[in-house]
């Protein structure tokens, strides 16, 4: 073991202390939200909830989870995240692979063609009309198809592919491998970090998305969990505001339950963030490598 000088050790303590403080400041708000989600809403309104619930309750979670349709929502969310991520990563990387070849005819024009979409969008209504005329309204496919290609991710992929040694592909070619073979057997297996990174980003955006179902889906059976939880929150807000007008309902609400919109929101936050957070540990090892992609390449 290397012996550290006093100064070095001092510095190290300082760095550790600083980093611990930093992680506490980012972790604490989340912890506080968790505490509030387990605390009675009426008690939370009195303020002063910090590290531990003062009046423990599971009521907030009971209200959220009592809706049996929620599991359908979970299924939709998970399915769209898995299917959407795999297909988007596959399609985007395939495009990027082609675009990484300098002998591709018209590559410059394709690039310009793609780049334009990064700066200019059609806006909501043209996109809506397009989606509608493609027959994607009220279809599960609306979660998948419009997001298949991300130009940004394509550029990251392309940069990564370009950095792979050309020799690998050439030797595969000499051994008689087809383009597909090279892509599947050489390029993809070497692209673990970039696939994990972009896959994670894609998965998170799929999981968090509530806007697409809002605009394009009117069928309850196709709604993801995010949308359903929002609806549960809304109806609680409506009940609360009606309590303000009607003395009997106010008294009843206060007597029978302690839920407030705030406590409900916190519980929802827990329900929707935990599943996607569980993905992180699995891709962590790639992730650390992955974020460096593109930094020194090209």
């Amino acid at each position: 073991m290397i012996r550290l000088s006093f100064n070095d050790r001092l510095m190290m303590y300082f760095i550790y202390a600083f980093l611990i403080l930093l992680s506490v400041t980012s972790f604490y708000p989340f912890w506080n939200a968790a505490v509030i989600s387990f605390n009675m809403g009426s008690d939370t309104a009195m303020g002063g909830i910090t590290f531990w619930p003062r009046a423990f309750t599971l009521e907030n979670y009971q209200l959220i989870l009592k809706d049996s349709r929620l599991f359908n929502g979970f299924f939709i969310s998970i399915t769209r995240t898995i299917v959407g991520t795999i297909s988007a990563v596959f399609m985007t990387s395939l495009l990027a692979y082609g675009m990484s070849k300098s002998h591709l005819i018209g590559r410059k024009y394709y690039t310009i063609y793609f780049i334009i979409t990064m700066y200019f969008g059609g806006g909501l209504i043209p996109v809506y009309l397009l989606v509608r005329s493609l027959g994607l309204m009220n279809s599960f496919l609306v979660y998948i198809i419009p997001g298949l290609i991300s130009v940004w991710n394509m550029i990251v992929f392309r940069t990564f592919f370009k950095s792979l040694p050309v020799g690998l592909e050439e030797s595969a070619q000499i051994d008689g491998s087809s383009n597909w073979g090279i892509y599947f057997r050489i390029v993809l297996p070497l692209s673990g970090p970039v696939i994990a990174t972009l896959g994670l980003f894609t998965a998170i955006s799929h999981w968090n998305d509530w806007f697409i179902p809002t605009i394009y889906i009117n069928n309850d059976n196709l709604l993801p969990i995010q949308t359903m939880l929002r609806q549960a929150l809304n109806s609680n807000i409506i009940q609360e505001s009606s309590g303000a007008l009607d003395s009997a309902s106010l008294a009843y609400l206060q007597k029978t339950r302690s839920i407030t919109s705030k406590s409900l929101q916190m519980a929802m936050m827990m329900v929707v963030t935990l599943p996607i957070m569980l993905v992180y540990p699995f891709v962590q090892k790639y992730f650390v490598k992955g974020v460096m992609i593109g930094s020194l390449k090209e």
Binding site: T79, V83, N138, F140, I144, N218
Partner: peptide, 25 residues
């Protein structure tokens, strides 16, 4: 295998939506 799976699942989605479409709009 993944590709096949995704196609199948996407197909499921489509048939679901086909049924759901009429009353919705």
């Amino acid at each position: 295998a993944i590709l096949v799976l995704s196609t199948v699942l996407a197909g499921c989605g489509k048939s679901n939506s086909g049924n759901g479409n009429t009353p919705a709009t």
